[in-house]
Design a binder for these strands. Structure first.
Lengths: 230, 230
DNA sequence: CAGCGTTGTCAACGGCGGTGACAGCGGATT
DNA sequence: AATCCGCTGTCACCGCCGTTGACAACGCTG
């Protein structure tokens, strides 16, 4: 029983997942359908069911691929904060680069290797930062959920039709111009408001890291503020 | 032309929106369909199209209702951080309470009053914190996007079938038990990992506020860390 | 060569968002 | 009072979706 792979097989989980990512890359909302996959692979749509139980199964496979992509070539830094930043950015980048897949996958545990590798890296960095196991666990979830939540957010915005996206982006300016007296702050700041499209993921990440750094080693001279320190 | 409202009208935008929220409240994934709305209101599904151009129009109306709900009864605090916390929590709560609606609405500008009220409140608090117009604008977007992104994340998790949700939640523990030597940190921290369901929204918010506080008034005696301060 | 499991094909199902023709009803016009 | 008109709800229908079950072709095993 040499278990030779039959050369006549047209499909495989790998080929299908790759096709899905390409499909989603080029395509607008809802590009990921069984019929589209079949079309792209020159195969009947229902053939995919020979390799994936249902769409959920397929989506989990996509998520797994994204985690692999995210961690490919990762090397830990001596600086724990730099490691955290790197991993979170990598996860966000990988998921945000495939909007449709991210939207479906971001809220799911894949329970496969790559995901646990990411968790392990984050936990290790947090432990090195001086947090205890419990704090590390909590902050790992914060950073992981943060990366995924924001990736899904970015992704679902990227999937909107172009006209809608542009209309949404310019909304504050338009409205601010109409009622200056009711919204003075908006009038004052409107021209600085970044469009929704350029999600403030990295800015928020830096703020988070700053907050973590403050918590990790309470400054000796400073007065700790109980109302702000979680 | 007294413009008397005809009493014979069965539907209205308000009635439909209310029905949608009820529908979504009790129902699992995909509960919000025109046919379901029609069924609930004892009316043909397509009658809804007399009041909303399409599903997108309907969803924007839902989002607007959620913003209204979020800000109902809001009173600003003297403490800027407390105001930020309050508004972000309110938005998150309102959206997370209606998963399906949040999922569709979180990435959209409604361009209606309630949304701009929220923006104005956040901007004002940030300006009072001492941030300039540009910083305030950037951080407003951070907090606003943060609230919506995490709400959508929570929501889409809440919408998963129960079995899937439970399986996902217990995943790290199971896996950690299987390969202690490859994932030592996971083994160490696994029992502290909060289930995905209990999203670490509030923990992250406190860290964010801590980070903002550090940025708002750089401590006189402390050495500013350029690599961590955005 | 016979048998069997794997893989792709095909026709079909019910549900989805959405459209266009049509009916009834109330208010305004004459 | 008769007529018209616009608004609202109904109905039949479209094309798309995920998914199923019967079936055919292929290659491996005995």
């Amino acid at each position: 029983m040499p278990a030779r792979r039959t050369p006549t097989v047209a499909l495989s989980r790998e080929r299908i997942v790759t096709a899905c990512l390409e499909l989603v890359e080029g395509g607008g909302p809802g590009a990921l359908t069984f019929r589209a996959i079949g079309r792209r692979l020159g195969v009947d749509a229902t053939a995919v069911y020979r390799h994936f139980r249902d769409k959920d199964d397929l989506v989990l496979a996509l998520a797994d691929r994204l985690y692999e992509e995210a961690l490919a070539g990762f090397a830990p830094s001596d600086d724990w904060a730099e490691t955290l930043r790197d991993v979170v950015l990598r996860i966000h980048r990988a998921f945000a680069g495939h909007p449709q897949a991210a939207l479906l996958a971001a809220t799911r545990s894949t329970r496969r290797e790559a995901e646990f590798r990411a968790i392990e890296i984050l936990l290790d960095a947090l432990r090195r930062a001086g947090f205890g196991p419990e704090e590390a666990a909590r902050y790992e979830r914060v950073l992981g959920d943060y990366a995924l939540a924001w990736a899904a957010f970015t992704a679902s915005f990227a999937m909107l039709p172009k006209e809608v996206r542009e209309a949404d982006a310019s909304a504050p300016l338009v409205y601010a111009a109409q009622s200056l007296e009711r919204y003075p702050r908006l009038a004052e700041c409107a021209r600085h408001l970044p469009p929704v499209a350029e999600s403030q993921f990295e800015t928020a990440l830096e703020i988070l890291l700053t907050g973590l750094r403050v918590s990790s080693r309470p400054p000796a001279g400073a007065v700790p503020d109980a109302s702000l320190t979680a």
